[in-house]
Design a protein around this nucleic acid. Structure first.
Length: 447
RNA sequence: GUGAUUGUAGCUCAGCUGGUUAGAGCGCCGGAUUGUGGUUCCGGAGGUCGCGGGUUCGAACCCCGUCUUUCACCCCA
């Protein structure tokens, strides 16, 4: 059998894991500094916990887990004959891999509401799964690193999240643009245009502006069945330019639209000071397909790398009510670990010390010598030095090559002459220099 | 889900309009070299040509299916 792994999944080498941990360490520190506490939730949830939260497209991409046991005999002939994936799917699968961290978090909050102090700030770094077709920067298993606050309507939460994005990406050295919009502004536009019931088609079309241009967006709207008057009027708006001031006039008659503009201005004004390296921009074309967003929406683009967004998020005022907890608004952001990794790699931004750690390998010259060498190893490990003995008395050439390959720079030689000695020769493999050193000297060098 | 694209040794790739025994470089193993590697030289192992079917006297090459890779759309981190 030929070894292979499932489509859209990856193995990670030691060097890759170390770099991924570097990113997670930066994020963890940024989260904890601002009062977020860690939680974890299961890899899979009950199917009905996840379905219906992400929109039609999202539901399609949920990985479902086949029931175990003799489940087929319990399915009636009518369901088989109907061949409808939705009704049949629910009978065949009752569990699913999590699609994101936000919905399981909402479930968690409702389920543990009596143990939680609100407003509740949590962070979570775990893999999620999507049955998507893989592409560059798009996988079927990938990590999300989320920070969310639940139980406060305050816009200061949004301001804090903008600063959290900025701080984390600054620390990673990745220049970014944080794009902000508000669903209420989009809803206000739809209201004025008289197409409230076509809101989703409307936002999907707007979202494409930077890809297909103004005329492309208008064509898309027409294709989606939006009335020609609405398309024409929206075309006039586009032509005039969608600045904040222009929107104020356009949305004058929409209460919801006005509210969205006020929220947006508050966040933009209050997040400007304290920004380190990121740019914060209003972008009215930002829509986001996830259905549960109700107010502010975020998306983060990395500068100088052609890849999808490296982060996203927004406010969900009503997500917990699906699980039975009303009037509990939440807002959160997500960092896409795998895409951040690709960006840092492409721009050469990983610090070198991430992969190179000091260590020493003891050459093995034979049975008796190994006993003596192993005593050195034990002492060094006890002092916190990464040390190991080559297990076999192989040719020195082979032992040197092993150290090279593993990235170990120092090699100790405990041969017949050095057995029981107080100091032993230590060779630096990259310079070729060799020096006789005591235990203390080795600890000082590598500890 | 729609439309393209890719697959030959551990890795990167050659392989002509279908023609005998499928090649190279790197890597790997052994030797020159039994306590000091990286150079050099010599030798060696390693392939169901992604998988299944078809066309043909004959298929790595043509056709069909399938899986996989990469990409665009959709959507998204």
């Amino acid at each position: 059998m030929k070894p292979s792994i499932a489509k859209g999944t990856r193995d990670f080498s030691a060097a890759e894991v170390q770099k991924r941990q570097h990113i997670m360490n930066v994020l963890r520190e940024a989260f904890e500094l601002r009062g977020f506490d860690p939680i974890e939730t299961p890899s899979f949830e009950n199917l009905d916990t996840l379905t219906g939260k992400y929109g039609e497209e999202g539901d399609r991409l949920i990985f479902k887990i086949l029931r175990s046991g003799d489940f087929t005999s319990k399915i009636d002939d009518g369901a088989w004959a109907g061949k409808d994936p939705k009704t049949l799917g629910a009978k065949v699968a009752d569990k699913a891999l999590r699609y994101d961290l936000t919905v399981p978090f909402a479930r968690y909050v409702v389920q543990h509401q009596n143990e939680i102090a609100f407003p509740f700030k949590r962070y979570q770094m775990q893999p999620v799964w999507r049955a998507d077709r893989p592409q560059k920067g798009r996988f079927r298993e990938f990590y999300q690193c989320d920070a969310d606050v639940v139980g406060s309507d305050s816009l200061w939460q949004e301001v804090e999240l903008v600063h959290l994005y900025d701080a984390a990406f600054t620390k990673l050295g990745l220049p970014t643009t944080i794009k902000i919009n508000n669903r209420k502004i989009l809803a206000g536009m739809a209201e004025i245009l008289g197409i409230k019931d076509q809101f989703i088609s409307f936002t999907v079309a707007i979202d494409k502006l930077d890809k297909v241009g103004p005329q492309g967006v208008l064509d898309e709207m027409t294709n989606q069945g939006i009335s020609s008057e609405a398309v024409f009027r929206f075309g006039q708006w586009l032509e005039a330019g969608m600045t904040l001031d222009a929107l104020k006039e356009v949305l004058a008659e929409s209460e919801e639209g006005q509210l969205g503009l006020e929220e947006l201005e508050f966040i933009l004004t209050n997040s400007q000071s304290g920004l380190q390296s990121s740019k914060v921009e209003f972008d009215f074309t930002l829509a986001r397909g996830l259905n549960y967003y109700t107010g502010t929406i975020f998306e983060v683009a990395a500068e100088g790398v052609a890849i999808g967004s490296v982060g996203g998020g927004g406010r969900y005022a009503d997500l917990t009510s699906i699980f039975g907890l009303k009037n509990t608004s939440g807002v959160g952001i997500s960092f896409g670990l795998d895409r951040i990794y690709l960006c840092l790699e492409e721009l050469g931004l990983f610090p070198t010390e991430v992969s190179a750690r000091p260590a020493i390998l003891f050459a093995n010259f034979g049975e008796a010598e190994a006993v003596s060498a192993y005593q050195w190893v034990t002492k060094l490990v006890g002092q916190g030095v990464r040390a190991e003995l080559y297990p076999d008395a192989a040719k020195l050439k082979k032992q040197f090559e092993f150290a090279d390959k593993k990235g170990i720079v120092h090699m100790a030689m405990v041969g017949t002459n050095e057995m029981g000695a107080e100091a032993i020769p230590v060779k630096n493999l990259s310079t070729g220099e060799q020096e006789v050193m005591s235990l203390e000297q080795i600890v000082a060098l590598l500890g």
